[in-house]
């Protein structure tokens, strides 16, 4: 399978601090690639390198077969559409003005702009007036228009940095529907998110911790590799006091609160009986959140 993104031994150093340390991974054409990690893990720095906003200290970044070197920035940037979490659209400009501006900065001709805009409006089923000011749009619609702006130059790779932050659950679900549609249009989506339920939609996921890549694979692969033994969902029969919680945690490899329940992985399956005295126990499959907690935050 061909790769659209190839990151090889990427290091980014700010002073003495390694923001990204020897990271290597590849993203294949047409996949939804999730990039997860706690704050400060090095996700944003890696994204900034892929989008040409930060220079790598060492290592290589290849986008659509082009090495990210001086003089080739334009070719690479033409293949990347970036939607940042911090900023989406200019509020005091209309939808049309925002899209025209995004298109011109990417050297899209007037003719292509009309065609691309019409295709993308069809994709998001857009029915608002183009003359509406962005400040008047609901946040969900604003995100969709921002996605159109990121795609207006028909990039092969779309980098979405927490695209659904601050958006209602309904809009989030719809936005992910759009992301899936994009892959059908031969786009590759590189996405970061803090919502683990959303991340389950990704074809593959990479997990970052302290600037290093600690795991990569499909969602089932990550779950199986992280938890080789059975996971249980336990619900205490009465509220756990400190001593109870401590005695249970001593039996477990993993003991994590999960809403009003706990997700546990026992050191020995035989301990299940002592657990059943205090809790209702049921077998569950680990969620991506469990994987995230175990890998990214487990050592904290």
């Amino acid at each position: 399978m061909r790769n659209i993104v190839e990151v090889q031994n990427l290091c980014v150093k700010f002073g003495d601090f390694f923001a990204v340390k020897d990271v290597s991974f590849a993203v294949t054409y047409g996949e939804i690639f999730g990039f997860l990690g706690a704050n400060g893990a090095g996700k944003t720095t890696t994204i900034r390198v892929i989008c040409g906003l930060t220079h790598a200290t060492s290592g290589e970044v290849i986008i659509a077969g082009e090495h990210f070197i001086k003089g080739k920035e334009d070719i690479i940037k033409a293949n990347v559409g970036y939607m940042s979490q911090r900023f989406t659209l200019y509020n005091d400009l209309t939808i049309k003005e925002n899209l025209d501006f995004a298109a011109t900065t990417h050297n899209v001709s007037r003719k292509d702009l009309q065609r691309n805009k019409s295709d993308l409006f069809d994709l998001i089923q857009f029915n608002k007036k183009e003359s509406s000011l962005v400040s008047e749009l609901p946040s969900g619609i604003k995100q969709q228009v921002a996605l159109v702006a990121a795609l207006i130059h028909q990039p092969k790779l779309v980098v979405l940095d927490e695209p659904t932050a601050g958006v209602s659950p309904v809009s989030r679900a719809y936005f992910w529907e759009l992301i899936r549609k994009l892959t059908k249009m031969n786009k590759t989506v590189f996405v970061t998110t803090h919502y683990m339920d959303e991340a389950e939609n990704c074809d593959r996921i990479a997990l970052m911790r302290s600037g290093e890549l600690i795991a990569i694979g499909t969602v089932p692969e990550l779950k199986n590799n992280t938890f080789s033994t059975q996971m249980y969902n336990i619900t205490p029969k009465k509220p756990l006091i400190n001593d109870d919680a401590e005695s249970i945690s001593r039996l477990c490899l993993l003991f994590e609160p999960y809403g009003i329940h706990y997700h546990v992985v026992l050191k020995h399956d035989a301990d299940i009986t002592s657990l059943e005295d205090k809790c209702y126990v049921e077998k569950v499959n680990p969620s991506l959140e469990d994987v995230f907690i175990k890998l990214v935050e487990g050592d904290r």
Binding site: R48, C51, G52, L53, E73, D74, K77, A78, V80, Y82, S84, R86, F87, Y90, A102, T105, H106, N107
Partner: peptide, 13 residues
């Protein structure tokens, strides 16, 4: 401040 400079610089501008 509003983060749009970053977006602007991700384009060939």
């Amino acid at each position: 401040e509003r983060g749009s400079m970053e977006l602007l610089l991700s384009t060939p501008v």
